Simulated scan of single mutants.
Amino acid sequence: MNLTDATLILLLAERIHGTDEGVREAAKSVVKKIPRGKRDLIYNVINSPSPLELVRHVAQNLDT
């Protein structure tokens, strides 16, 4: 698994679950499956007070 796969999983969790806890649980399930050097984004989502908003922000800025 790479960071692109993990990001896609977070975007899908946001779309499917639509809750902070759903997104946080998805992030927890993938964090150990990606290389250590690429885990910063996933840990930011896990530790965020509002992971749903963070993932939405990431989604809005994917093209930049």
Rank of each mutant, 00 (worst) to 15 (best):
Met1Gln: 09
Met1Pro: 11
Met1Tyr: 04
Met1Val: 12
Met1Asn: 09
Met1Trp: 06
Asn2Leu: 08
Asn2Ala: 05
Asn2Cys: 09
Leu3Ile: 14
Ala6Tyr: 01
Ala6Gly: 05
Thr7Glu: 14
Leu8Phe: 11
Ile9Met: 09
Leu10Met: 09
Leu11Asp: 08
Leu12Tyr: 04
Leu12Met: 13
Leu12His: 08
Ala13His: 00
Glu14Asp: 13
Glu14Cys: 06
Glu14Lys: 06
Glu14Trp: 01
Arg15His: 10
Arg15Phe: 07
Ile16Pro: 00
Ile16Arg: 08
His17Arg: 09
His17Leu: 09
Gly18Leu: 01
Gly18Glu: 00
Thr19Pro: 01
Asp20His: 04
Asp20Gly: 01
Glu21Gln: 08
Arg24Asn: 03
Arg24Tyr: 02
Glu25Val: 03
Ala26Cys: 01
Ala26Glu: 05
Lys28Trp: 03
Lys28Glu: 15
Ser29Thr: 07
Ser29Pro: 02
Ser29Cys: 08
Val30Trp: 02
Val30Arg: 07
Val30Phe: 00
Val30Asn: 08
Val31Tyr: 07
Lys32Ala: 14
Lys33Tyr: 09
Arg36Tyr: 02
Arg36Ser: 12
Arg36Val: 08
Gly37Ile: 05
Gly37Cys: 07
Asp40Phe: 07
Asp40Gln: 14
Ile42Cys: 08
Tyr43Trp: 15
Asn44Leu: 13
Val45Ser: 07
Ile46Gln: 02
Ile46Val: 09
Ile46Ser: 05
Asn47His: 12
Ser48Glu: 03
Ser48Val: 03
Ser48His: 08
Pro49Asp: 10
Pro49Gly: 03
Pro49Lys: 06
Ser50Leu: 04
Ser50Trp: 00
Ser50Arg: 12
Pro51Phe: 04
Leu52Pro: 02
Leu52Ile: 07
Glu53Cys: 05
Glu53Lys: 12
Glu53Gln: 11
Glu53His: 04
Leu54Val: 04
Val55Gln: 02
Arg56Phe: 02
His57Thr: 14
His57Glu: 15
Val58Arg: 13
Val58Ala: 12
Ala59Met: 12
Gln60Val: 10
Gln60Lys: 15
Gln60Ala: 15
Asn61Thr: 14
Asn61Trp: 05
Leu62Gln: 14
Asp63Leu: 14
Asp63Glu: 15
Thr64Leu: 12
Thr64Gln: 13
